[in-house]
Design a protein around this nucleic acid. Structure first.
Lengths: 219, 219
DNA sequence: GTCTATACACTGATAGAC
DNA sequence: GTCTATCAGTGTATAGAC
């Protein structure tokens, strides 16, 4: 039974096991994302999954192990997209538009994951080791190489202003993610805490961010 | 004794009381910022302050009250600067440069506060009520009014491209804060976890962000 | 696999002496 | 104001029956 974990979490499971395990992961994801590792309670996760504490410990012996699983799933949902985008061979403008569009969709679907990842990583940066290699690292060369030489090339062609790949990527990611993770404070300060107005704002920002980023590097 | 809190936390305290209370607040700030409300332990705070648990409860009856005090201090250190900047009567470009410069200084001095605020606010958005009114709200009109009409004016003069005050403010704040709160992941993905390189990056970004923001609205 | 009952450690908070 | 000692509650984890 425990072998399943080493090989593939789902491959040899019966329908029933799969359902219970999936219910646990769904519940754990919900609770951990809202309350964090330290704020979450095993009892609460069990309740939300419709089982009891003992069964929870039967599937994941410790809270720590359950958390790690949830964190890895969250991580692997968000981070590989960045790699995908940076290494595709589309022209730079198209690439940026495509990435922003898709990333904002993903954020809308899972608005709490980035804050969850950022927060837990600040508490325990060691969680990163292994995960980056597993989800990002290329077989050869570094991640920035592709987009860096692409920018350089298009700069020489006179269609893109000089900018470092790191600054560009940081800007894109910041402008996409920050308004989501810092929603409470921005909504409070800039929108008098009007939820509907902020939703509208986020919706309109989709086109705005694309245009803003593109314009900032268009010559 | 309790009156001190209503008037001024420090005004009537003896040197000794002041030292102990300050030691507690310093210790609590450290622990809470790194571990959050739920992850922090009263014992740990007491240890760091060089006192024991009982004395901690003597000054702040509950963990909750101690946390609230620390949170308010953190909040009032970061948020009023935004108001100050938005309502000053400098020309817009000067205003933006001044704000970015000062905000990045503040962030360098207290890199963990924004993540702390964002995280705790996501867990409990109710903490905002009262704080915004106390730290931000103007006597008359709203916060955005000043900078909004300023932008409009300079647009008519033909020196600024049209942009909503909310989008502009969101961009400025995002580009300043995100690289700090998301440091672990950005440093990991874009800098192969090289701390020194990332510090250098942040240093160079100071000028970059100013120029980037200014250029984006300069006609 | 799933449950009930329980062990055991830890944490926030208080009592009471000095 | 500051300490030692201690309590009551809660949380993770396990034992054992089905």
């Amino acid at each position: 039974m425990w072998l399943n974990y080493l090989v593939n979490t789902y491959s040899f499971m019966t329908e029933h096991e799969m359902n219970t395990e999936q219910k646990i992961l769904d519940a754990a994801k919900d609770i951990f994302q809202h309350k964090g590792m330290t704020g979450a309670r095993m009892q609460e996760i069990a309740d939300k999954a419709g089982i009891n504490k003992a069964l929870l410990h039967y599937y994941y012996r410790t809270k720590e192990k359950l958390f790690e699983k949830v964190f890895e799933l969250a991580f692997s949902l968000f981070i590989p997209k960045v790699k995908e985008m940076m290494t595709s061979d589309k022209p730079i403008f198209e690439k940026l538009e495509f990435f922003i569009e898709n990333y904002l969709n993903l954020l809308q679907k899972h608005p709490y994951i980035p804050g969850f990842i950022i927060n837990e990583l600040n508490r325990n940066p060691k969680m990163l080791v292994g995960l980056i290699e597993k989800n990002i690292q290329l077989k050869e060369g570094n991640l920035l190489g592709v987009i860096e030489s692409q920018i350089q090339h298009e700069v020489e062609l006179g269609i893109v202003k000089p900018i470092s790949a790191r600054n560009l990527m940081t800007n894109v990611i910041s402008l996409c993610i920050f308004p989501i993770v810092a929603r409470p404070i921005l909504q409070g300060v800039l929108f008098e805490n009007d939820k509907k107005e902020y939703d509208l704002f986020l919706e309109q920002r989709r086109a705005f961010v694309k245009e803003y980023i593109i314009n900032s590097i268009k010559v």
